[in-house]
């Protein structure tokens, strides 16, 4: 029991620290890649090629002045960034980084938990996390904030559906709701080959769920002056910011898990493949941000309901037929 607890605590700490480091350095990746795409250098001064910039930003965040607007709903205003960040970090628990390894004679699994309802828990917690942004916008007592929060709520409801439909197709092919089983079912042939439509659906809806650029309706700088986080300053703003990048990491890790075969890869299976694919997906998120302009709000809504949802349903129908005919 004691040994089990110790291993669990160490694993949790390691996973948490790795996640936070990846979150910190994906801000660096984002600024660097965006810079080079736009023929600039990006951060260059703090450390070698700006490598210490995330740490400097964190320190700056702690020392900034905290402002709470007069007409803000104070408890909710404080709670909102905590919900955002808490849900984002909780999702890290579910990610399978690798298979079993043997360290000092003990067999240790490179995932914290293997729930038989993992896929559902991801959907549930990501919905809870989106309350953070919505409440943050509403509680700051600012009209831009309220509009941002409402857009966030509407977008969440619309795209969560198609996201879940894309995942149902994956679950049908893999035959399990557990993430570890889903990865194991992809030995040899990845789900991106079996489910290309679900892959594209998942990428689009996932980008909408984590508010990346073509779908960053809740914060749309040009229209809403930063939307839901307009009144936030100092570490509370930094928490929203970190939650966003944590979501990006989780999104990249989930694409890897569901579609790109997780820790499987040519030559030797292992967590290095997982991290390689995850970093490619993080790069992809930055890449598409610098490529696509923001959509109009009504376009986002009609795209979600009139195009993605029918495609998701059709994909499930075809997957079911295919499985029925070929008797898989």
């Amino acid at each position: 029991m004691l040994e089990f607890m110790t291993i669990l605590i160490i694993k949790t700490l390691v996973a948490f620290i790795v996640a936070i480091l990846i979150v910190a350095y994906s801000t660096w990746i984002e600024r660097k890649v965006l810079g080079h795409v736009q023929l600039r250098h990006g951060p260059l001064r703090v450390g070698f090629h700006g490598l210490l910039q995330p740490i400097a930003d964190g320190v700056k965040g702690f020392f900034k002045e905290e402002l709470i607007p007069d007409n803000a709903d104070k408890p909710l205003f404080v709670l909102a960034p905590i919900i955002s960040m808490g849900a984002a970090v909780t999702l890290v628990v579910l990610i399978p980084f690798g298979d079993k390894v043997t360290i000092m004679g003990r067999e240790i699994t490179l995932y914290l938990t293997d729930l038989d309802v993992g896929v559902l828990l991801i959907l549930g917690i990501s919905t809870i996390g989106s309350y953070g942004g919505i409440l943050g916008g509403w509680s700051s007592g600012n009209k831009y904030g309220v509009i941002g929060g409402m857009r966030g709520a509407a977008q969440m409801i619309s795209y969560e559906l198609s996201l879940a439909l894309a995942l149902i197709a994956v679950v049908m092919v893999s035959g399990s709701l557990s993430l570890v089983d889903i990865v194991n079912s992809q030995t040899g042939l990845w789900n991106i080959v079996k489910q290309p439509v679900a892959f594209v659906l998942f990428i689009i809806c996932g980008l909408a769920e984590i508010n990346r650029t073509p779908f960053d309706m809740p914060e749309a700088e040009a229209e809403l002056a930063c939307g839901f986080n307009v009144e936030y300053s100092s570490m509370k703003f930094a928490l929203f910011f970190m939650a966003e990048y944590c979501h990006m990491f989780v999104f990249a890790a989930l694409v890897t898990t569901f579609f790109l075969g997780g820790w499987h890869g040519p030559i030797i299976d292992g967590p290095h493949w997982f991290f390689l694919k995850t970093f490619f997906m993080i790069f992809f998120c930055v890449w598409e941000r610098s490529t696509f302009p923001r959509l109009r709000y009504d376009q986002v809504m009609s795209f979600g309901w009139k195009i993605l949802l029918p495609i998701g349903l059709l994909n499930i129908l075809l997957t079911g037929l295919w499985m029925l005919i070929f008797n898989i």
């Binding site: 559902l120 828990l121 959907l123 549930g124 917690i125 919905t127 809870i128 989106s130 309350y131 919505i134 409402m150 709520a153 509407a154 969440m156 409801i157 969560e160």
Partner: peptide
Amino acid sequence: IIIYAGAIMMFIIF
């Protein structure tokens, strides 16, 4: 969590 705490309450809050 998904249906009640997530979807339905999201509609109500909206």
